[in-house]
């Protein structure tokens, strides 16, 4: 039976690992060295790891390849890497230095043709599309890009269906309003996406407790939940999270 996944999230800014609140780059907290964190998560048998260079698109530069390399060296678990990935060569490069999947956000909105090419080249299962959502003045979930700084006018459901159609293998949905707040996942948003697409969905943004992981998996058909703060700032670890969920009868790796 396929297991629900718990995915620690590492955010990178200026070469340091940080934790933001609601994507605010000013109010970020420095939480240490990414490769040390990767080593710890590998030892804790995390199901997967996601590593995002959050300021790459905003600063119009490529991801820090050296840091990806260092993080990848510590991982014997699947590693998804994102931030500023805009070309087939970028993808080839991160796969070559140790990533297993790439996570594409801004380029998915700006250049759908690139996503199609990437899927044709690397297969659907290598391409994860990350969508950052924020409720607009009409209470609709709107897609934001460039690290949450740019409005697009696009509806999250429409974009989810669109990227599924052009071959994305997974969709990672982040609630900007919940991100870093530890106020709980936005399960309404997650459910909307999960119901709209046939590809696996990774929910992200706001996980506040082990019960929140449980609620997420019980109330929605989400395939994975990704979290940063709860692992950085509390004493919960991926392995403890899985033990808790396992004892609650949720399908996770023992």
């Amino acid at each position: 039976m396929i297991k629900n996944r718990i995915i620690p999230l590492l955010l990178l800014k200026d070469g340091r690992m940080v934790k933001t609140i609601k994507f605010d780059k000013q109010g970020f907290r420095d939480v240490g060295n990414p490769s040390t964190a990767a080593r710890v998560y590998d030892a804790q048998r995390a199901d997967e790891l996601i590593f995002l260079d959050i300021s790459a698109s905003q600063e119009d530069r490529k991801i820090f390849f050296d840091l990806v390399r260092q993080v990848a060296e510590e991982c014997f678990m699947p590693l998804g890497v994102g931030g500023g990935i805009r070309s087939i060569n970028d993808i080839r490069e991160v796969l070559k230095i140790g990533a297993d999947k790439v996570i594409i956000n801004t380029a998915a909105v700006e250049n759908p043709k690139f996503i199609m090419e990437a899927v044709q080249k690397f297969g659907s299962s290598t391409i994860v599309i990350s969508i950052d959502a924020k409720k607009n003045e009409n209470e609709q979930y709107e897609v934001m890009t460039h690290g949450g700084t740019k409005k697009t006018g696009l509806d999250v459901i429409e974009l989810s269906k669109e990227v599924e159609k052009i071959g994305a293998g997974e969709i990672m949905i982040t609630s900007i309003e919940r991100e870093g707040t530890m106020r709980g996942l936005d399960l309404v948003l997650v459910e909307k996406i999960v119901e709209s697409v046939k590809v696996p969905v990774i929910a992200c943004g706001g996980v506040d407790s082990l019960e929140d992981f449980k609620r997420g998996f019980l109330r929605t058909a989400v395939s994975a939940i990704s979290a940063g703060s709860i692992f950085h700032f509390t004493d919960q670890s991926p392995i403890m999270t899985r033990n808790y969920l396992f004892n609650q009868g949720i399908s996770v790796r023992p």
Partner: peptide
Amino acid sequence: LKVPHVGWNDVIFNGSHILFRGIPDSCDFY
């Protein structure tokens, strides 16, 4: 079920093979 099949799932061995030595039957692979 969603496609792609992504994640950890149990692998059931069909008889024994030297490459599975030391690995429990039905354990999870990615």
